Simulated scan of single mutants.
Amino acid sequence: MLYYLLYEVLHLKYQVFGPLRVFGYPSFRALLAAMTATLICLLLGAPMIAWLRRLKYGQEIREEGVKAHQAKKGTPTMGGVLIITGIVAGTLLWADLSNLYVWVVLFALLAHGAIGFLDDYLKIARRQNLGLQGRWKLLGQVTTALVIGGVLIGFGNYATYLSVPFFKDFQPDLTAWLYLPFMLLVMTGSSNAVNLTDGLDGLAISTTFVVALTLTLLCYVTGLTELALYLNLPPSPLALEVTVFCAALAGASLGFLWFNAPPAEVFMGDVGSLAIGGCMGCVAIVIKQELLLVILGGVFVIETLSVILQVSYYKLTKDPQTGIGKRIFKMSPLHHHFELTGWKESKIVFRFLIVQIFFALVALATLKLR
C-alpha cells in the first residue's frame, strides 16, 4: 500500500519528490518490510502475551515427553499469530500487490496458519496435547497445495520442470499431472517439518530466520533475469517481488525470537510452525528451487527423518507378544534425543543453529557448483 502511494502515485504519476524513486527497488522495500515486521512483533509481543495469559491459552505438554518440559506447561501458545501479523503487514505495506506470486505466498501463509490455529484451539479447548486429527490436518494442507498449484499453472505461466542442484543442464519436466503431486509433497513436507522442529525454546524460529534470509537472496537473484541466467537459475521476474515477503518473514522471525528465546515467554504453536513451513515451501516452488530446499532446510529435514526412522524401526522390530519395539534414538525428533543424553536446551538450540547456517552456506554454494 505504501509502495503504491509513494512510488506509483507520488513518484511516477505526480513526480512530487525525485528521491521517492528509491521505493521502486524491491531490495530497498525488502529492508523496509523486514524492519516493519520486526518492529510490529516487538511492539505487539508483550500485549499479545498478556492477552493470551488472560485467556489462559497455555501450552499442553505430553506426558510421555521429556519430563523437564512439564515446567513449561501453561506457557502462552498461538504466538504464531504475531509472526503472521508481522509478515502480512510488512508485505502489504511494501510489496507490489499487483504481483500474482505475492498473493500466492500470502495465501500459503494464511491457509496453513488457519489449519494450525484450529489445531491449537482444539488442544486448548480439550486441555490436552491432541488437536486436529491428522487426516483433517492433511486434508487442509493438500487442499491448499492443490489450490496454489492450480493458480500457478493455470494463471501464472508457470513451468513444470525441476531445477536440480549441482546439475547445469539436467531439468526434467514433470508435466502438470506429475508436478501437482510433487508440489503437494514439497509444501506439506515443509509445513510438517517445521512443526516437528518446534520443540525447544527458540529452535524453530532461529533456524527459520536463517532459511528466510537465504530465500530472500534466492528470490532476488531469481527475479533478475541476467543474474539468474549467469548463475544457471530459472529466471522469474515475478519472483523478484517475493523478496519483500521473504524479508518480512526474516524480520518477523527476528522479532518473535525476542520473546521465544530461552526461557520462552510464548510458543508459536501450530499456527506459527505450519504457516512458516507452508509458506517457505511455496516460496521454493515459485522460484523453482524445490529440491534445493532439502539442502537449505537441512535441520528441518534431519528432524523429520529422525521421526520417520524412529517410527519405522519401532514398527519393524515390534515384538508380537509384548507389542514393544526397539528405538534408534532415545526419543524423536532428534532434539529430544540430545536432551535425554544430557545436553542443555540452550546448547542444542545454538548447535542446531550453527548446523542450519552451514546448510544455508552449502545451498548458496550450489549456485556456482553447477
Score class of each variant (00 low, 15 high):
V16G: 00
L6K: 10
F352M: 04
V105Q: 05
L254Y: 10
L118A: 12
L369V: 15
L10K: 14
I308V: 11
H69P: 06
L52R: 11
G269N: 03
L296R: 01
G156A: 08
M280V: 13
R54W: 09
T322D: 02
G325S: 02
G65P: 10
A261V: 10
P234F: 07
K123I: 07
D319H: 09
P237C: 12
G116R: 10
F338H: 09
L2G: 12
S306D: 04
L231V: 02
F170W: 03
L43E: 01
R135I: 15
L32T: 06
I124E: 03
T207S: 14
L5S: 11
V210L: 12
W258C: 09
G149L: 10
Y57E: 08
L100T: 01
T304I: 10
K368T: 01
P333W: 04
I328G: 10
K368R: 06
A261R: 15
R21Q: 15
L139S: 09
D119M: 02
V147F: 14
V244S: 08
P235D: 14
A247F: 00
P235W: 15
G342N: 04
F338D: 02
E303F: 05
H336R: 02
L6Y: 12
H11M: 01
L97Q: 07
A68M: 08
Y313C: 00
G79K: 13
A247P: 00
N195P: 03
P262K: 14
L292R: 01
T75Y: 07
P262R: 13
D319W: 02
G278R: 12
M331H: 01
V164K: 05
G113F: 15
F167A: 05
M1P: 00
A264G: 02
W343T: 08
A71M: 04
A239N: 12
Y7V: 07
N157Q: 15
L20H: 04
L138V: 08
L257Y: 02
I84V: 13
K326T: 02
D96Q: 13
T91N: 09
A176L: 06
M268C: 11
P165Y: 07
P262M: 08
V286Y: 10
I328W: 10
T36C: 06
V349M: 09
A239W: 10
S206C: 04
L2A: 14
A89S: 01
G134V: 06
T77C: 03
G278M: 13
F352W: 09
G113N: 12
G251S: 03
I308P: 07
T143Y: 14
M48N: 10
G269I: 00
G86P: 12
L174C: 10
S253E: 01
Y230E: 04
Q171F: 03
D120V: 08
G18H: 11
K344F: 03
L39F: 11
T216L: 00
V194E: 02
L55S: 10
A365L: 15
L20T: 04
G269L: 02
L42K: 00
T175V: 15
A33H: 07
L291D: 06
